[in-house]
Design a protein around this nucleic acid. Structure first.
Lengths: 341, 341
DNA sequence: TTTAATTGTGCAAACCTTTGCATTGACTTT
DNA sequence: AAAGTCAATGCAAAGGTTTGCACAATTAAA
């Protein structure tokens, strides 16, 4: 018995033909006659021949792998996006390498270097909340690696982008709160520097403005990070004001839930004394008490579209495709944490 | 300018030495004199030389990649384990490829084939709930790929295993319920065929048995899958019994939360009329109302240990290490969904 | 019958790195 | 002076596949 795996050379020797003929036969090259093809395929089957993709990678200078960079996966948002990505990529010849930046610019940089070292073919990225400089992505592009940005925009970076209209989602949510009679609407914003933070804040501000509600800067507090502690601290700052807000529009469900937790602890009735609306519509948000009003995003679809866009670039390496910017529309979901209209 | 990336041959040509010398210089081979090394390293730096890992992969017949197979990542459990795995692997020379089986045996099979094709170096796997046959893992082992099983046991498979003492966790939870005076304790079990389902069920049974509580088979209902619908259906079956249970020990938090949802809808007071205990201690479980009593598992540590065990195999390819079986101890966390002792 | 076209296959290079063995020259020992 | 030792480097193979070009054999056309 031969040691190691079977190679085309083994098949060639056995059949007394050249390895190149075996290669062509297996790839259904038109110049090979049917009998030869059949013989080769039969023997390959019999010997359980497995092409050595490592050799192919070297030859083609590509790893057939796509890198996916996300800040974290323990929340629902990114894991659902990844599931969407995976479901598209699975049907292609590509493999996925998921990398976690832990919301750190440094780690994101390290990841990009690593991916570029292993000669990744394309990258899908939701930048960390610390990332302000996008040169590492530009470097990827310069070496011919297509980059698709999702969820969080990178202002100034020319690349494909799959985003959500955060502005619209926030605007709708806040306008809804105004409609239910809330006068003092606060905003628990996300970490500064994120495009989503900015967009949701702007939606909040414009909704107030449009409805002639004066803006109170004490009512805008940003969390520094996504931990429960961060949210608690920010919420307390809001609820301990003399002139307490009667509604909170939070950057996301996680923060909203922490806020509700504190509000309840302080003895406030939700939604009668404080309305709360979140963002993301995480699956458990409908199970907490009171069930959380929130802004739903088509997460799974975003993942799928991002992956499809990347694949289309990989399949049209030569032809220059325009950068696409796809913006999904979020939907307001009203539950029990906000008053009725 | 030279096109494409810089290779050792480029450096060699420039310095008028052999590529092999360049290779040795870069790898600090003792037979190369300092001046040569310095010159090579300086030029490599200047030209921004990046070793071609694809070539190395072919030479070493390994991809420097580890496959991680999990049923899903949208829940907290597996995403936290993955985070633990990642945090260990990041410090090694390996990359991680995360694959989702969607709780499907078929897909798991496809994934294993794929991983074996790309010549993965090791595999970490939590088998799907459908998987009864482990031959695909044995095939990996036979071709020299170490396999570490985590969370869900594969009975009869000889491999490293990182598990939790589900039996103990369940036993403790049920005994606690008995201690608070519950007489009719039901069990919302997981999908049949999972080792965790079986162990938790056994813990439930033994706790009743030890405390001389008669076992009522009507009180044991297994969910077919992990969807909300599945849980709702199973819960209704329990709560609509003439002789309604006064406590539910659920397979996991997700099911427990669905069950609480239904119980509340039916107007039952928790925990006065029905106590509920879950399993997993997902982060949001403490935020729902009433906050969920549950069994905590050291998820992050499990991920880290699994990864470390795999690495130790990869680093000691020759020496035959014994298969390890590590069993973590879970902890009962009492909150408000169960009565006080 | 010669020339041209067609069909099927083989050769060798290329992808880039590592490594066992050979080689060279300088120096040491007997 | 001859033989042996040692340091430093080069040569070439190996890893498995694809592919442009060459070549041989057969068939068709002139």
């Amino acid at each position: 018995m031969r040691k190691g795996r079977v190679t085309i050379t083994d098949i060639a020797r056995e059949l007394k033909i050249a390895p190149s003929t075996v290669s062509r036969a297996l790839n259904d090259h038109p110049a090979i006659k049917k009998e030869t093809k059949d013989a080769v395929k039969a023997l390959a089957e019999a010997l359980d021949y497995q092409p050595n993709l490592l050799a192919l990678n070297l030859l083609q200078k590509k790893s057939n792998t796509i890198g996916v960079i996300v800040p974290e996966i323990t929340g629902h948002f990114f894991s659902a996006i990844i599931t969407g990505i995976q479901d598209v990529i699975v049907d292609s010849e590509y493999n996925i390498m998921i990398c976690l930046s832990n919301e750190s610019y440094e780690e994101e940089l390290t990841i990009v270097k690593r991916l570029s070292k292993i000669q990744i073919d394309g990258v899908l990225v939701a930048p960390s909340s610390e990332t302000k400089n996008f040169d590492h992505f530009r470097r990827l592009q310069k070496s011919g690696i297509p980059v698709v940005v999702f969820d969080r925009d990178c202002p100034g970076l020319e690349a494909d982008k799959v985003l959500v209209n955060d502005y619209f989602g926030a605007f709708q949510a806040v306008e809804y709160l105004i409609g239910t009679g809330c006068k003092n609407i606060a905003h628990l914003g996300g970490p500064l520097n994120l495009s989503t933070t900015e967009q949701r804040l702007q939606g909040y501000l414009d909704a107030l403005d449009k409805n002639k509600v004066p803006i109170n800067s004490d009512f805008i507090v940003h969390v520094p990070g996504f931990s429960h502690k961060d949210a608690v601290k920010a919420t307390k700052k809001l609820l301990e004001l003399k002139d307490r807000p009667d509604a909170i529009f939070a950057y996301n469900d996680k923060i909203a839930i922490s806020a509700m937790h504190i509000a309840k602890k302080m003895g406030l009735k939700i939604p009668d004394e404080v309305s709360v609306i979140g963002f993301d519509d995480e699956p458990h948000s409908s199970f907490i008490t009171p069930s959380l009003s929130t802004v739903w995003q088509p997460v799974y679809s975003m993942g799928m579209l991002s992956a499809r866009i990347l694949l289309s670039h990989l399949n049209n390496k030569n032809s220059i495709l325009e950068f696409r910017k796809e913006v999904f529309k979020p939907e307001l979901v009203i539950r029990a944490s906000s008053k009725v209209n």
